[in-house]
């Protein structure tokens, strides 16, 4: 395994309280594998990504767990080692593209600089490749766009520049946080194809955070479903999307808007997401679950095979055999 997260818990401390954002999260990513992370807004997807990168904010506290990358525990790395790992081996596409772009540097130069640093070629050649990489992410008129500053680009163009940036120094592990939210389906399709090629040709592993189950269906081999800071279901894409087992996963699939009729309210999952300051003793989904059992509010379920003997499909739910 390239990456193994084991029992990871993260808390944010503030003056008033303590937000338990991640609770005993475990999953792994193999070489060349594309793993989708899906889950409700606020469920801990980005916090998981930032933990791997060592970029959690100062008020964060890792209370349990380990993150092993190529066999070393990242949590015991020095700041400097972590930084060099981020530059060379682990790449990131952030959820908010502006955070990754230098505001006063032209797009072409930002890309060319990274390419120049990573391959032993002249700056001029690096710039030529930078323009080519913009074309690869379907940017029209790449020569012109290369001369622009970030604020002169549209939202979707910025998002693609950041993807081009992450791919221009191909990492061993790419963490992409909602990389295609601003893109229409046709462009999204091309961008996802590029990622797939990166995984297949170069063996790059990709952790793809997305709320779009269509994206998962297109490129991911496996899926991790998160709810309120916990992994509630995991399995191959086929298993999770076609035979979902956890009531949250089922509800998520049922809330897809594409079949909704105009004028009819869309199906949302009733109730609110739990208060992360006071996590319940039992199942975190119990207050919103339509099939909860007496044990659900008392005991916390753990990940177990969804069907007996399954090594891939795991679910954390007392009702899994019902």
């Amino acid at each position: 395994m390239l990456l193994e997260i084991h029992n990871l818990s993260v808390e944010f401390e503030s003056m008033q309280d303590r937000v338990k954002a991640l609770q005993a999260v475990s999953f792994s990513i193999d070489e060349g594998e594309i793993v989708g992370i899906v889950g409700e807004s606020g469920s801990g997807k980005s916090v998981t990504a930032l933990s791997i990168l060592g970029l959690l904010e100062k008020n964060a506290h890792i209370s349990t767990g380990s993150i092993s990358y190529k066999g070393k525990n990242l949590l015991s790395l020095s700041k400097k080692d972590w930084q060099s790992l981020r530059g060379k081996e682990i790449g990131m596409v952030f959820q908010e593209p502006m955070t990754a772009l230098h505001p006063t540097m032209r797009i072409g130069d930002q890309l060319a600089e990274v390419i120049h640093r990573h391959r032993s070629i002249s700056y001029k050649e690096a710039y030529r490749q930078a323009v080519a990489s913009l074309a690869e992410v379907q940017i029209n008129d790449p020569e012109l766009v290369a001369r622009k500053y970030p604020f002169e680009l549209s939202g979707g163009m910025r998002q693609r520049v950041v993807i081009a940036l992450a791919m221009s120094a191909p990492p061993d592990l790419l963490i992409a946080d909602e990389p295609t939210t601003a893109l229409d389906v046709t462009i999204q399709h091309e961008v996802l194809k590029l990622m797939q090629e990166l995984a297949q040709k170069r063996g790059t592993s990709i952790m793809l955070i997305t709320h779009d189950l269509g994206v998962v269906a297109q490129v991911c081999q496996r899926v991790v479903v998160m709810y309120a800071g916990e992994v509630v279901e995991t399995g191959t894409t086929q298993e999770v999307l076609h035979s979902p087992c956890h009531p949250y996963t089922k509800a998520l699939i049922g809330a897809l808007p594409d079949l909704a009729e105009q004028g009819q309210p869309l199906l949302a999952i009733p109730g609110e997401s739990p208060d992360l300051r006071n996590r319940p003793d039992g199942c975190v989904f119990a207050p919103r679950c339509s099939c909860s059992l007496p044990i659900c509010r008392e005991d916390h379920p753990v990940l177990e095979p969804a069907v007996s003997g399954s090594l891939t499909h795991q679910v954390s739910c007392w009702g899994r055999n019902q």
């Binding site: 409700e40 807004s41 601003a182 998520l252 809330a255 808007p257 949302a268």
Partner: peptide, 21 residues
Amino acid sequence: LDEPTSALDVSVQANVLNLLQ
């Protein structure tokens, strides 16, 4: 509203769209 729900999962998106309606 410029892409008001692009960063939201389907269930939260449903809540926001229902609210707007």
